[in-house]
Structures are given as C-alpha cells and as structure tokens.
Amino acid sequence: MKKALVAALLIIISIPMLIAVAAMPPHGDADSPVHTHVSARYIEHGEEEAGAENLVTGVLLNYRGLDTAGEVIVIFTALMAAFAVLITHPGRGEESGPTTAALDPEPGTEPESDSKAPPPISPVVSFMVRLLTPFTTLFAIYVILNGHVTPGGGFQGGAILGGMFIALTIVLGEDKVRTLLPRRAAPWMQGAAVFAFVAIGVIGAATTGYFLGYPTDASLHLVRELMMVVIEIGIGLGGAAIFATIFLQMEAE
C-alpha cells in the first residue's frame, strides 16, 4: 500500500520533469547553447590557452581549477569523516598521537587478538593479483602522467592504484600492505592532492598574479606542463592513499 502510494507520488512528480526536459534544446544539436557559448571558446582556443591536448584536463586543471581543488578537498573530507566515525579504540595509542592508533599499529606492541590471520584465499586469485600488481601499477602511472594528452588523469590513475591496493590487502592481509603507508608519511600522502594544488596555486599567484594561474607565454610551455603533471601526481597519490586508508579503516572496524 505504502509502496503504491510512493510510486504514484513519484509518477506525479516525474510529469513536470518530463515536460521540462522535453523542452530542453534538442539532444546532440551542435547549435544548442551548450556548444555555442563557453565550450566553443574552449574547443577553439583551449589547446594553446590551457596547455593540454585533452581539453577535459584543461578544463579541470586550468579553466575550472578551483572546482578540482574543491573536489580533492571533498575526498579528503571523506577520509576525515571515515576516521571520525570509525575509530573506536579508546586508550590505544593515547599519548602517541592519533594517526598511530588509527592507521598503523606498531608491530609487537599489539595485543594478540588484533593480528588476525588473513582469511584463506584461493591460490588462483592470490596468484593472479600478485602477477598483475606490477602491470597495474605501471598502467596507473601511465594514466596519471598522460592525463593532459590522452583520456585519463590523476583521479582515474589514483582509483586504479587504490583498487590495486585493496586487492593486495585482500590477498596479502593488511599487515603487509600497511607497510606501504608508514605512520609518519601517511598524513602527507593522504593530503598530497590538497598540498599539490595549494603549492601550484600559490606559485601561480606569485608569478602571474592570479591564484592557480599558469604562465601563458609560449616559451614557458614546458613549465606549464610540469605544473599540471605535479598536480596530477598529487591527485593520483592522494586519491590512492585515501581510498586505501578508508578501506583499511573499514576493515579494522
């Protein structure tokens, strides 16, 4: 009964929505406002203005750089939120700082019960994950470094790296994988994307007078490309570290 009521209500809501989208400019029409206003300039001048053959990267890092900066902060917020919601061991690592207990229980000092043996994994799965790890890593690095030329970029590469990390955790157990995120370095890696953005932004402000400004001079083309690659690496590293940490945190809980 309730379900039928909800369905009826939603059908009523969807009617004005359908009428409105039907009145939108025709789908795929090259003369619609989407293609004739801001995009037109991006497509015409984007390559030399923004310095990236892949215009999506040009928009992400240059024209709308602040959005992407906000986006890396959103994912950092998710990490902070996961910590704030999931940490539940009062007393553990009380005086030695928060991240210790959260992330990296020091080997030897841990109570026995916490070092659980990894669950049995099929040897086939285990072998395949181990076999593919170097190739996955290589592919992820390629995707990160070529984001401004081909489809890809920091987020995509970071997601691949993070996925690989999670697969490794399942196969090898978390203790071994945690060594990849050392206690002292972990917060730097998790914040890498934010730091890369702010650093490049401040350099831009100092040289061009605008936050997140890139040198526009043709002779400085390589500098501009380097700045973009730095941001992409930061996003890739930070994204991977955040995905991995959230997963480890959920598993520990």
């Binding site: 902060i73 917020t77 932004g201 402000a205």
Partner: peptide, 26 residues
C-alpha cells in the same frame, strides 16, 4: 586581491594539515 582566495583556502588547507601537526600529540 588575494584575501578572497585566502579566506576560503586557509581553513581548508588548515584541515588538511591538522592530522600532520597532531602526529606527535593530539
């Protein structure tokens, strides 16, 4: 002119640095 980005980015960057500054003691 840079007060405007500064006012937005200071708390956000400060948040990203919080886990680092509190590594030794919370």
């Amino acid at each position: 002119p840079h007060w405007l980005p500064l006012v937005v980015l200071t708390p956000l960057l400060g948040a990203a640095l919080t886990p680092i500054v509190s590594l030794r003691t919370r």
